[in-house]
Amino acid sequence: MTNATTPAKPGVKMTIEVYTVSRYGVVSPPRATVSVPHNYEPVLEPINTGFGPCQCPSHRQAGAAR
């Protein structure tokens, strides 16, 4: 594989090609190709995004001993 397997398309910032490699090192042809345009802006998550309460047995009940 090389860094530039195909010429860059106009207006494309990045191209990702997905390959499969066997346990013996045999590389398959690309399974998928994804192009990211220059004007693409991902949706940003709010900074206050948090995780729910821990669900492990030690923390399921308030005040449980650790």
Rank of each mutant, 00 (worst) to 15 (best):
A32Y: 11
G52S: 02
P42M: 01
V34I: 08
G50Q: 05
P30C: 03
G25S: 00
N48A: 03
G50H: 06
G11N: 05
A65L: 12
G50V: 07
T2L: 11
S22G: 09
L44S: 14
E17T: 06
A8G: 10
T6R: 09
V43L: 14
Y24P: 00
Y24Q: 12
V21C: 01
V27H: 03
T5C: 09
E17C: 06
P29T: 09
G52E: 01
S35N: 13
C56F: 10
Y24G: 08
A32T: 07
P30R: 02
A8N: 10
Y40F: 14
V27R: 05
P10I: 00
Q55E: 09
T49Q: 06
P57T: 04
S35F: 10
Q61K: 15
P10L: 02
V12I: 15
P7V: 02
A62M: 15
A32R: 11
C54S: 11
E41G: 06
T33G: 04
P42R: 00
V36S: 05
Y19M: 01
A65P: 02
P29R: 06
C54I: 10
C56W: 07
T2P: 09
P46I: 07
G63I: 10
G50P: 00
T33N: 06
P10R: 05
A4Y: 07
V26Q: 12
G52H: 02
G25W: 00
E41W: 07
T5G: 09
V36W: 02
N3K: 13
P30I: 03
G11M: 06
P30F: 02
T20A: 10
